[in-house]
Amino acid sequence: MPVRRGHVAPQNTFLDTIIRKFEGQSRKFIIANARVENCAVIYCNDGFCELCGYSRAEVMQRPCTCDFLHGPRTQRRAAAQIAQALLGAEERKVEIAFYRKDGSCFLCLVDVVPVKNEDGAVIMFILNFEVVMEKDMVGSPAHDTNHRGPPTSWLAPGRAKTFRLKLPALLALTARESSVRSGGAGGAGAPGAVVVDVDLTPAAPSSESLALDEVTAMDNHVAGLGPAEERRALVGPGSPPRSAPGQLPSPRAHSLNPDASGSSCSLARTRSRESCASVRRASSADDIEAMRAGVLPPPPRHASTGAMHPLRSGLLNSTSDSDLVRYRTISKIPQITLNFVDLKGDPFLASPTSDREIIAPKIKERTHNVTEKVTQVLSLGADVLPEYKLQAPRIHRWTILHYSPFKAVWDWLILLLVIYTAVFTPYSAAFLLKETEEGPPATECGYACQPLAVVDLIVDIMFIVDILINFRTTYVNANEEVVSHPGRIAVHYFKGWFLIDMVAAIPFDLLI
């Protein structure tokens, strides 16, 4: 008679799926529990143990900040960024110097990925580790590398530091407007667009060049630039800015003055950032001319202004700041037409079709709590990747769950009947059967004279019903998954307890 339990259901295979997918890609990662103190490590794979030199037993239950890997060259700011990422709910990448158990130093890129439950609360953290440099290539500990984003994938490793954006290309926007319009339909740009040429040739750093990471940081200074100062900065030398009595002219307006920039070969870094931020506020060169004239017309309804409409929906549905990093990277690809469009465009503009998908598509409701890094690593669709929660398995109709209350009560009843059979069957065979043979035949009273025979008949009927119930009862397979398919249940029961239950259900007393 089957006594099969499996009270692990309803099970959740999400954690096993993450481990299996990460292991298949030869990654070095740990999984931490966000619900406990210090976000203790609950799993670390073999790749991480080989990377740091510690065994799994030495890593388990330690804080996922990996303070046991810190050393003299470990930056405090990087460690603080990892700790801050564990307090938030967004994906974050941090470069930090770690030390192995043998004392060797290596520069590592740590990717902190939160995993949320159905309520939107962070319950786990996945920390992925990628070695960037070994100890002989690690720089000085005073050099802070965590304020910069990861290198873009479309640049060669040897040319990542030679990417320079020439400031004269930004200063000569109005001069290039006529050349853009003359391109017409034969050019790649839309009317009114501004073409910015980027020099990728390796050259020595000069005062006129600005690194790509500095251009990325310009967006942080746009908020500090007032509207009046932006307007004066875009007017140009024809209309000098008016300053109040006793007030000095704005240095932001002076930063885009061609006369002032041409007199000296070098520009201050602050002026460069502010000038680029001011130019980015204009949607095209037409807006710059309109600002000089004193009238700013409404933005025209053409394809170039609607190019950012799908980007707005993608940004609203993005799951991490990696989408913004990807957008900034692609927006700086050289030799393309940049349409400086305000994100607050007309909502009635139709979304044009684009061959290049900048932001990841909208994630469906079932995966809105899973970050983009987890979705990318697992390579699963929205119909396959579940949320991290207890999910009731989908069972067929008329199927009994093996952990249901009805099955528990039924098993206790069958257990009592088995005990009765084990006690009274030998007793009936030894004593009652002998008395029946010696006594007179009682054929007239039937079952009324033999109450134990009636009980034995009921017990046999219950055993037959138990066999039928076992054909529709779920079970737990070797992978700790609840199986509810009727065919698989029948095959599993035939290979197991079916023969024993059938022999126990045969009414031998009635056959004798």
Rank of each mutant, 00 (worst) to 15 (best):
V3L: 13
R5V: 09
R5H: 09
V8G: 14
V8P: 07
A9T: 08
R20V: 05
I30W: 01
I31G: 01
R35W: 08
A40N: 07
V41N: 01
I42F: 01
N45L: 01
N45W: 01
D46V: 05
D46E: 13
D46G: 05
F48L: 01
Y54A: 01
R56I: 01
V59T: 01
V59F: 01
Q61N: 09
P63M: 04
T65I: 09
D67M: 09
R76D: 15
R77C: 06
Q84A: 13
Q84K: 12
A85M: 03
G88E: 13
G88P: 01
C105F: 09
F106W: 04
V110D: 01
A121N: 05
A121S: 13
M124H: 08
E130I: 05
V138Q: 14
S140A: 10
P141R: 11
A142W: 04
N146Y: 15
R148P: 12
F163H: 13
P168L: 03
L170F: 11
L171P: 13
R181H: 06
G184W: 13
G186R: 14
G189V: 05
L200Y: 15
T201R: 09
P202E: 10
P205R: 05
P205Y: 04
S206A: 09
S206I: 12
S207K: 11
A211T: 13
L212N: 09
E214M: 05
A217G: 13
M218S: 10
A223G: 08
G226T: 07
P227F: 14
E230Q: 10
G236M: 04
P240V: 12
S250M: 15
S250D: 09
P251V: 11
A253W: 07
L256S: 14
A260I: 07
S264A: 14
T270S: 11
R271V: 05
S272R: 08
I288W: 08
I288K: 07
G294P: 14
S304T: 14
L311S: 08
R312C: 14
N317H: 09
S318F: 09
T319D: 14
L324I: 14
K332V: 01
T337Y: 05
L343R: 14
D346G: 11
D346F: 14
F348Y: 11
P352I: 06
E365G: 12
T367Q: 09
H368P: 06
N369D: 07
T371Q: 07
E372G: 12
E372C: 07
